[in-house]
């Protein structure tokens, strides 16, 4: 059974403070014990694998020796036949047959060993899955405990300041005011940049005698006043 259901019962029952049991302590112990058991089983399985590997190496060596012997006797049997030593060749052939049956036994021993090795690998995988699953379960408990820790100090402050009302609205207003201020400053910066670029252009135009002269202002005003008087 997963720890979530356990946790739900505890949290529903009001276990919200840091340090309060959010799952049955026994459930945690069982998960931890299962992890330790699986780790022990994996360690001993790995020892078995090492032993089996050495048996396998030995078997392979023995099979190779038999193969070499068989090849050797086959040559000798052929020689005996060629020499017309039929009886001797038969004796050699019997020896070869013995060796081949011995080889067959070794080969089947090796096949059994292979099956065992595969079983052990599968067992290790299964145990590793148990470890990973239990660790995930324990991490759920740990996550809730950490969430409690991370929330605790602030929620006490909420209790203290919450009574004044509109705490969230006021905080939102302050954030938005700051963001607006920041936005305004950015816009002001852009405006200034724009102005400076514009001034630059005006200055360039004036330098070429193409812009509005700074001194034409007075004569313009005078002309306007005269025109108004005439009107």
């Amino acid at each position: 059974m997963g720890v979530l259901r356990d946790m739900f019962t505890a949290l529903k029952g009001g276990a919200n403070e840091v340090g309060e049991a959010i799952v049955d302590a026994n459930a945690i112990r069982i998960l931890e014990q299962e992890i330790r058991d699986a780790e022990t089983a994996i360690a001993s399985a790995k020892q078995s694998l090492t032993r089996m590997k050495s048996s396998e190496i030995k078997l392979k060596r023995e099979v190779a020796t038999i193969d070499a012997d068989v090849a050797d006797y086959e040559q000798k049997a052929v020689k005996a036949l060629n020499a017309g030593e039929e009886a001797l060749a038969t004796e050699v052939a019997e020896r070869i047959a013995e060796l081949e049956s011995e080889r067959g036994e070794k080969a089947s021993e090796q096949a059994t060993l292979d099956t065992e090795v595969q079983k052990i690998h599968a067992m290790i995988k299964a145990r590793e899955r148990t470890i990973a699953k239990n660790k995930r379960e324990l991490d759920k408990v740990r996550t809730v405990q950490e969430l409690q820790r991370a929330t605790e100090s602030v929620s006490k402050n909420f209790a203290a300041t919450g009574s004044s009302g509109h705490r969230v609205s006021k905080a939102l207003e302050r954030v938005k005011a700051k963001q607006q201020g920041w936005q305004d400053r950015m816009e002001a910066g852009e405006w200034l940049e724009h102005q400076e670029a514009g001034d630059d252009l005006d200055a360039k135009l004036r330098a070429k005698g193409l812009g509005d002269s700074a001194n034409t202002g007075a004569s313009d005003v005078l002309a306007r006043l005269k025109a108004r008087q005439a009107g």
Binding site: R136, D139, E146, T151, S155, F158, G162, R167
Partner: peptide
């Protein structure tokens, strides 16, 4: 800057928590 984030860790995860408000609010 009004709602700080509280960061903590477990064996596998980094948790970031922002407490928003209490049920009493």
């Amino acid at each position: 800057d009004e709602f700080p984030i509280h960061v903590t860790m477990t064996e596998t995860q980094l948790l970031s928590v922002t407490p928003l408000f209490s049920t009493s609010e």
